[in-house]
Design a protein around this nucleic acid. Sequence first.
RNA 1: GCCGGGGUGGUGAAACCGGUAACCACAGGGGACUUAAAAUCCCCCGGGAGCAAUCCCUUGCGGGUUCGAAUCCCGCCCCCGGCACCA
Length: 834
Amino acid sequence: MDDENRGWVASEIERKWQAYWDEHGTNSFTDEELRTAENPFYNLMMFPYPSAEGLHVGNIYAFTGADVHGRYQRLRGKDVFEPIGFDAFGIHSENFALKVGRHPMDLIPSNIENFTRQLRRIGGMFDWGHVVDTTHPSYYRWTQWVFLKLFDAGLAERKEAPVNWCPSCMTVLANEQVIGGACERCDTPVEQRRIAQWFFRITDYAQRLLDNLDEIDWSETTTKAQRNWIGRSEGAEIAFPVVPHDELPGDGGSPTSVDPGAVRSVDGARMIRVFTTRPDTLFGATFMVLAPEHPLVDVLTSDAQRATVEAYRAKAAASDLVSRQKTDKTKTGVPTGGYCRNPATGEALPVWIADYVLMDYGTGAIMAVPGHDERDFEFATEFGLPIRRVIADGGEDAGTPLEEAASGDGTLVNSARFDGMSKDRAIRAITEWVGERGLGALRVNFRLHDWCISRQRYWGPPIPIVHCDGCGPVGVPEEQLPVVLPRVEDFKPLDDGISPLARDESWYRTECPTCGADARRETDVSDTFLDSGWYFLRYPNAGFDDRALDPEITGKWLPVDAYIGGNEHAVLHLLYARFLTMVLKDLGHIDFEEPFTQFRAHGLIIRNGAKMSKSKGNVIVPDPIIEEFGADTFRLYLMFLGPFEEGGDYRDEGIEGPRGFLSRVWDSVTCAEERAPDPDVERKLHQTIEQVTGQLADLQYNTSIAAMMEYLNVARAGGRTAARAEVEPLVVMLAPFAPHIAEELWEHLGHAGSIFDSAPWPDFDPEKTREDAVDLAVQVNGKLRGTVRIPAGADQATAEAAARAEENVLRYLNDGEIRRVIHVPDRLLNYVVT
RNA sequence: GCCGGGGUGGUGAAACCGGUAACCACAGGGGACUUAAAAUCCCCCGGGAGCAAUCCCUUGCGGGUUCGAAUCCCGCCCCCGGCACCA
């Protein structure tokens, strides 16, 4: 708006330089250039989902922060490859298409077009020649290729798994779509179903995924989240022999104890296997609990209990996976009527089923030690089961009853010959002791589950498998890729959990690639996380139609040097990407196993102290802001809001600061005089270069900008006109944040070509950063009593002489006797007086 | 409950390795220019007392270590994010 008042017209400059970059290929590489680059630097940001609403300010914040880093590296002499793409498959797009009643194949291209327009407008250094669109057959052809590589290596397998099922919508729901046990759309209570799905065996890589975290330079918060998710725990697997029904007393009572030595592994005998982190408490196990779905439930259940057990199992199956795992509900469960033997005591323990034991963690069965586990304690209290102390922690002895579960450290009691042993020693000793009888071994367990990649949905890449009655599941031969997603007009997920693709008979009917018999295509599509799990590998190879990865180019550019993105992807996306990279390395397609050398999570932008949301109507719409202030000002303001890795609070008025700053830079540069720099200004300049150079490398953008503002205030102090040599380096330092105005000023200063090609990053001379006088704080008993200006590097005698010349200091010194003097050169002098 | 990250002026935030708390901005107040407004420029701006010099208080709360603590230690409170019946 007030362009005529600020000497520069943002929209004109921005249009001019964006056109220049396109014409001159400033930001893009040819495939030949990718091959020959000397200082490759792969600068990556998380590609967006191209929503109909357009770029969100959170996207712009992330991209700008990443772009500043890329431009900085470029000015430091790196050949920076900074690609962008679109993560356009997935439920998000599909649900939106359903909502507006249009087809995603029609919506996505226009969304991408709009995103492209906006991305160009914010002035990112994107390589528009290497764009990736996950929904384009030229991309998902290779996504399917990745699937086949895992399939061929035995890392993709089909197995049954429980899913959330809405009986009203007749569809599978993701956990996030279940609100309080009900479908988020129709409020119908959700139930569990078991259906056959494709899984990637990521658990095979659990230990490696964990170990490598020590080697990579990632935000601490992100690696912590991954460690937590992988969830390694050390413990033991212990087997409890099932007491056969014919050994049970006829009166329905419990069988008697036997000598522990007689409890041993016998071929063919059924065992209940449990995982426990506390094998030291084995003597305290007083009952067993199996998950309702546990396969041994059938054989354990007595005739008398069968009806009760079946009813409980049915109820458990009818509840959804989310509310099943709520911790705050009262424990429920029923006895099966079956028993097994505790290998430590020889006692017969009743076996219960309860939904607090989960089939998909450990072995789906636990030994219940109510004395030393909170959940087991609660369960035992609820059902009147025995609670036995086997750990004492000093104050108590073996006989002290337990008021609550004591899960801490201590010494063993009531544990026969292990009494008196410490918890940690007993873990090993007891496991070895039962191990001698074939009933136990130390074991590591992970919380991580295999990655289910099947989606009974439409908007994704078809899984490249053909089901043949004779040959089973067969991979589609590579030369037949891509398996093109057909245009299905009725893609609403209905029917009975079967993918919409199953409605297109002409598509799914095919012949078996192996035997030629009539066969049927897999009708599920794959998870969006598979698309995003390898896109960074594809960017530099986007120009090749005949191969997924060119070895030479991939070897040169990967792994990614710097990856910036949101921490909402700390676990799934970043873990899957690491897993796929490891697999592709093991299969010989690439020669590195960690995809991102450095990862930094950016913070979130809030507005006026509140989260932005559509319902609150406080969402920042970027286009009008860019319209009014220009991309440079907007970028600069976003980066000035707060520490990049923490985010910031966007306040509309705040943009005035960076706007005024850019105007003053413009004035100072366009009016600069050809003369020698002032020594004081030059000193400040060198200090500023030192600070900005160091801080930009660490993504400390807000303080870098503050330093540049401070410098300009010095260079313009008292209304003085700056010398050219005083402001030219400032233009270069500003270029990563405000690339368009920097280009224009660089040209104004008489340079040819883009500043990013021709400008050297300014050097600072440590000699010239040195102050010759400093303000020394003078304290008496730690309280500031004066400040004296003395030569830099002055010794204590000089400092004291100056300090004692201060009237106010003397006042306090005269009060008592000086006990001690602390002198920190160039900083302070502290008199300790009594 | 567990794991992260935080808590500093009216606001967003600075502060090297423990060394002058509040850089840089926003908002606010005052002034210059202007017929007027906008824009621009200059000055003030944590709280309290005082004409002033200057003094006292102040980094969520309570203790501690230290000549000296926003920073280190112990014990709490609160906010944000993630995980959560994980055996």
